[in-house]
Design a binder for these strands. Structure first.
Lengths: 190, 190
DNA sequence: CCTGGGCATTGATATAGATCAAGAAATGAA
DNA sequence: TTCATTTCTTGATCTATATCAATGCCCAGG
């Protein structure tokens, strides 16, 4: 498990053995069966996680009882709700496993400890946040301005592997369209 | 101009005189008339800016020639396109003044210098990014799941002062609805 | 090897909101 | 002030997508 994390981090920065040891003390390995929750709305988020294998999803349930998926988190992604953890506020989001998954859990104080101990990690983290912001901006524009079909095709292009492994109704939820509409779009593309 | 920036930063962290002097060397004051651009799509972003007074907007023009406003930036907000500046890629976004505005420009290297010189600023910046992420997530969910009317009312609640000062068709563009629809929604609410 | 409950498909209908078009009102430049 | 331009409003259609409903499918657990 830890080797996967190491490999991921070393894509960007070199780790000394001591640094790797620090990481090992901060993350806690955990297995999740399909359908198990890492976090439920209403709870204050205590942990974020790095996904070693499998796939999780983060989603809200809105006032009308509908699910809306914020993102899928397959291998090498991070999930959590920093906002909630930071301000000790109940989270709006659920996080659960849509496949049997292995994750490395970390709490916010430990993460902060890593940031303080490893400046290179800190700036890598900052870069990651900035990158994420940019992709969220794109998604906002797409949601506001493009058709269901355009969003679907764009998703296929951007995340081909995710498109293949998640159930269709979840993809629909991510795209903000009904499962029926997605089914019709796909039919038409055949 | 600089006093406004100082007051803004000192909401979160204390500044010594030396630190304030450093800031003064990093930011360049600039006046923008209504309609003037801080940045155009296609250009590599060189500067971000802190808005001292007035109001700017960041927006895209999509394939069909339509504008979509990402956000408004009145006093005490920041604008820019870090993604573009960071990777030296042409930006997708325009930034222009919708009122006569005063801004303090800063380039990415200077900003990085501040982050390295002032750890408290760095962590404040990190907090800011995280907070922004959370609000963008909310906007994504809203865009995908709520009606035009709901989004309008939510905007009024969240940014009452912005709602009053920006032209209605820009608000419509931000909300992802046509100006006609927004006009009808407002009529109904009277 | 059954079998039942989630998934996907398909059809029929309803509707929010877009688009087109035209007039009214506001804004600002001269 | 006056004229011109931009913005806002209102009405009449049109369309993408939701919703409702029925059917078939498939694979997971007994």
């Amino acid at each position: 498990m830890f080797e996967k994390l190491r490999a991921y981090i070393e894509k960007h920065i070199k780790l000394t053995e001591e640094q790797f040891d620090l990481l090992k003390t901060c993350f806690v390995p955990m297995k999740l069966k399909k359908g198990e929750f890492l976090q439920r709305a209403g709870e204050v988020t205590r942990y974020g996680a790095f996904v070693v294998s499998g796939c999780l999803r983060k989603y809200v349930i809105d006032a009308k009882g509908k699910e809306h998926i914020l993102y899928f988190a397959p291998e090498d992604w991070w999930v959590g709700d920093i906002e909630s953890g930071l301000h000790q506020l109940p989270s709006l989001y659920f996080v659960d496993a849509i496949e049997h998954s292995d994750v490395l859990q970390i709490d916010l104080p430990s993460h902060q400890k890593i940031i303080e101990a490893m400046p290179a990690y800190a700036s890598q983290y900052q870069l990651g946040l900035q990158k994420h912001m940019a992709s969220k901006d794109k998604r906002i524009v797409a949601a506001l301005s493009t058709s269901a079909e355009e969003r679907y095709l764009e998703f296929l292009k951007t995340y081909p592997s995710i498109a293949q492994r998640v159930p269709q109704h979840m993809l629909a939820s991510y795209l903000g369209i009904s499962p029926e509409t997605l089914s019709r779009i796909r039919k038409q593309k055949r």
